[in-house]
Design a protein around this nucleic acid. Structure first.
Lengths: 129, 129
DNA sequence: TGTAAAACGATAATTATTCCTATTTTTATA
DNA sequence: TATAAAAATAGGAATAATTATCGTTTTACA
């Protein structure tokens, strides 16, 4: 993989913000430094960075993906009203968090824990090759 | 809200499966009983059912939403290889689950806990009206 | 510096989802 | 049961997010 200033700029912007921006928001910002950058380049590099593990993709179900350069273990709170994604300290107990919805965050209507990986049956198929 | 056989059929199918199907998969199935049903009807009813809290929407980031009629507290495991979503017992400790990736599930590369609700600043704005 | 591989910009294409409208179904009630 | 208003539908057009294509530009390195 070769260096690219556009990719560097995307990463830099993502590391500088806590806003969990969408591809389009990232595009608008990076455009200030690279006015000719195309949205396709933003998408291509985001996919790359996610695959490299340098960026996390956050799927809220609001119709567009959010991105986060903070790859440390932490969770998120999504407001279905303003569509913002906020950071949460990782809290040990799911039940505790559910009970603690009065902690000043807002209401908690849905708590969803999603694990992503490669399942046993896919691992088996892959090892057969 | 009025009764509709199409909506009933969608709910029935969702309750009968543990596959966490996408709108299109649901459409293909319900079409067997209602050959003239349209995809728009499936989407409209899924949105309705989610808003009523009778169905959960699961966003995996694979480009399309998954749906689940099991609204009991539970988590999911998503295989980025076969794109299937599997049920997980709710486990009290996130760290425990992370450590337990050898439990026969497969690999766990990402664990993301997402809370959805209405945040404090949106609640404040709403109460001003 | 020259060249091959990688990345880019512009834009077309694709896919998931929502919107629109005339028609049909449902429900309440006479 | 007939009827009329409200709600839902089918079909298709429209939209929005994302991916693919392809000729041009950058990057790496001999």
């Amino acid at each position: 993989m070769n260096y690219s200033r556009q990719r560097e700029s995307i990463k830099e912007y993502l590391m500088s913000t806590k806003e969990h921006p969408t591809a389009d928001v990232i595009y608008q910002h990076v455009k200030e430094a690279y006015p000719k950058i195309s949205l396709g380049t933003v998408y291509r590099n985001l996919t790359l960075l996610v695959d490299l593990g340098e960026v996390r993709k956050i799927s809220t179900g609001d119709g567009t993906e959010h991105y986060d350069a903070d790859t440390s273990a932490h969770s998120h709170y999504y407001c279905r009203c303003c569509h913002r994604v906020m950071d949460l300290e990782v809290t040990p107990s799911v039940d505790q968090i559910l009970a603690a919805s009065s902690a000043g965050l807002g209401t908690i209507e849905i708590a969803n824990l999603l694990f992503t990986g490669v399942c046993q049956s896919c691992l088996n198929e892959q090892s057969q090759k």
